[in-house]
Deep mutational scan, measured.
Amino acid sequence: MTSCHIAEEHIQKVAIFGGTHGNELTGVFLVKHWLENGAEIQRTGLEVKPFITNPRAVKKCTRYIDCDLNRIFDLENLGKKMSEDLPYEVRRAQEINHLFGPKDSEDSYDIIFDLHNTTSNMGCTLILEDSRNNFLIQMFHYIKTSLAPLPCYVYLIEHPSLKYATTRSIAKYPVGIEVGPQPQGVLRADILDQMRKMIKHALDFIHHFNEGKEFPPCAIEVYKIIEKVDYPRDENGEIAAIIHPNLQDQDWKPLHPGDPMFLTLDGKTIPLGGDCTVYPVFVNEAAYYEKKEAFAKTTKLTLNAKSIRCCLH
C-alpha cells in the first residue's frame, strides 16, 4: 500500500463567511444568496454554514464600524470581559468565536472560507496562513488546477512579526479568498463568478477527501510576504508620492531593483532599492491607505505537500 500522510479526520463542519468587511460585496451577495438557497454549497455528509460576519458594517456598506474585524481574533480580544464599552467588532468577534470556535479547541469548525474583495488587480487569490499544512496545500492545488487556465495565486502570510489574527483563524483550516479588482461597494459579475467557482472547487475537494480519495504528493507556487511598504510621506505625515503608473495593476509581476515604484507630484520617480527582485501584491489597495500600506513585497517559492487521505471509520 502506498505510504501517505493521513489527515486527522474527515471534514464535518464548514463555514463560509461574507461581510467580514461590509463594503466587499461579492461575499456579502453570495452568502445572502446561499442563506436563501444553499443547494449549490451542500455536499453529502458535510455541514456547510453561510454566515454574515459583520452585519452592521454590511448594512452601512462600510469596511467596519469601530475597528477591523479581520485583525482582532487574538486571545487578548477574544478574552476581554464582555461589555457595551467594547468596540462593536470586538464584541462581534467574541460572538463569532462562540459560534464557530472556540479558537484553538477541538470544537472549532474544521474549515472557514472568508470571502473578500480587493481594489487591487490580484485576480483569484487564496490566502494561506501555514506553509506546513498538507491538507490546505492539497486543497489549493486542486482549486488552482480546477480553475486553469484562469490564474489563481496563493498568498502566504506566515511571518515572524506580522500577526494578522484573522476572522477565519478560529477554524482548524483557515482559508482566505480574495478576488479583484473590484471597487468597494460595487458588485461585478465576473468577480462574483470567479469567487463562486473557487468555493465550488473547494467544496468538491472536501467531498472527494471525505469519500476516501487519496491525493498524491503535489507542489504549489506561493508568494510569501516579506514586508509592507508605506507611501513616501512629508514631515507632516502626508502622502508625498503615489503608486507609479508602471507599478499600478502589476500585482504578482516581478519588481526589480531600480524599477519605478512611486511618483511625486513634481514628476520624480522613486525606484525600488535593494538588490532583490520582489513580487508586489495589494498594490494601491483602497482599504490600506489608513493602514499606511502602499503594497506588500513578496518572494516566490514552492511548497510541497505529502499525499493525504481521509481516515475512514
Rank of each mutant, 00 (worst) to 15 (best):
E211V: 09
S108H: 12
M122P: 00
L30H: 04
Y153R: 15
Q138D: 00
I191L: 12
R63C: 07
V222Q: 06
P260T: 05
K200G: 13
L99W: 12
V28T: 15
E76H: 12
E158V: 01
K297M: 14
G258H: 08
E40S: 00
V48D: 03
F262K: 04
G79F: 14
R233A: 07
Q184E: 15
P87N: 10
C4M: 13
Y288Q: 14
Y223C: 00
K49A: 10
F51D: 01
L147Q: 02
I65N: 08
G267S: 06
F215Y: 10
Q248M: 12
T20C: 12
N37I: 01
E8H: 15
L187P: 12
I308A: 01
F262V: 03
L86W: 10
E36K: 13
I226W: 08
E211W: 06
A240H: 09
E129V: 06
V48Y: 04
D193Y: 15
V222M: 02
H21N: 08
K49W: 06
K228W: 11
Q42T: 11
H21C: 12
T298G: 06
V90W: 10
G19A: 00
A93P: 06
T44N: 14
A15D: 06
S3I: 07
A294C: 01
N54F: 01
F73V: 12
D107N: 13
L69F: 08
I6Y: 13
P216M: 06
M261E: 00
D251M: 05
S105Y: 10
K306A: 13
T145P: 05
F140A: 11
E238R: 10
I143E: 01
Q184D: 14
A296H: 15
T166H: 12
P87V: 09
V31S: 01
G45H: 07
G273F: 06
L272V: 08
Y142N: 03
P216A: 09
P217K: 06
K103F: 09
E221I: 02
F51Y: 13
Y289F: 14
I308E: 01
N54D: 06
L99F: 12
F17E: 02
A148K: 10
P280A: 05
C124A: 10
D68W: 03
A296Y: 08
G101W: 04
E129N: 11
L203W: 05
H256V: 08
I11P: 07
R132T: 15
H21I: 07
Y231R: 03
T269E: 13
G18S: 05
T167Y: 09
L272Y: 15
Y279R: 04
T167P: 15
N117S: 14
T166D: 08
I137C: 00
G180T: 06
I11E: 03
D249R: 02
L187F: 03
V90F: 11
K213F: 13
L69M: 12
F29G: 08
K32I: 01
R132Y: 08
D266H: 07
G273E: 15
D234Y: 08
Y173N: 11
I143Y: 02
C4L: 14
A93H: 09
K13M: 00
L312D: 15
Q250L: 04
C311A: 15
P232D: 02
Q42H: 12
Y153N: 15
A202W: 05
C218I: 07
A286K: 07
I220K: 02
F73G: 12
G212K: 00
V222I: 02
T125I: 00
F17G: 06
C152K: 03
T62K: 14
T44Y: 08
E214W: 09
L86V: 13
L86E: 12
Q184M: 12
L255A: 00
D68C: 04
C152N: 01
L187H: 03
T20H: 08
E47C: 11
T264C: 08
L78A: 10
I137D: 03
Y164K: 15
A57Y: 02
N70H: 08
E76P: 12
E214Y: 07
G273V: 10
R91H: 12
E158N: 07
P174H: 15
C61H: 12
Y279W: 11
K306Q: 13
M198C: 15
S169R: 11
K224A: 05
L301I: 14
E76N: 12
P232M: 02
N210Y: 01
L86P: 11
I308N: 04
A171M: 02
A7E: 15
A165I: 09
L25Y: 08
L265Y: 14
E95K: 13
S307W: 02
I41M: 02
G27A: 08
Y64C: 09
S108R: 15
Q182W: 05
E9G: 12
N117P: 03
G38K: 11
L312C: 14
I220C: 06
L150D: 11
H208A: 14
D104V: 10
N210T: 06
A93I: 10
D74G: 12
E106H: 13
R91E: 13
I270G: 03
G273D: 15
N236A: 10
L265Q: 08
N97M: 10
E76G: 13
T166W: 10
E95N: 09
Y142H: 08
T298P: 01
I112K: 02
P280G: 01
E84P: 14
L156V: 07
E106A: 14
T298K: 04
D190G: 06
K13P: 04
L115F: 04
E36L: 08
V281M: 10
L75P: 14
K59Y: 09
A294I: 05
N70Q: 09
I157N: 15
E235I: 08
A148I: 07
K253Y: 06
L128N: 04
L75V: 14
S161I: 09
L115Q: 05
P102W: 09
R56E: 14
K268F: 06
T302V: 13
L203R: 06
L115S: 04
N117V: 01
S169F: 02
S120Q: 02
I225R: 15
T119H: 05
G176A: 14
F113E: 01
L99G: 08
Q250R: 12
I143L: 02
A202E: 06
K292H: 10
Y231M: 05
G79H: 15
D110Y: 03
K224H: 07
H5Q: 14
P245D: 00
E293L: 13
I41N: 00
S161V: 10
F282V: 04
D230H: 13
E129Y: 08
N70G: 11
I199A: 03
T264F: 03
A15P: 06
D230N: 11
K291T: 10
G101A: 08
E76L: 11
K32M: 05
D266R: 06
K172P: 08
G19P: 00
H208P: 05
A287Y: 10
L75I: 13
G185P: 04
T298S: 12
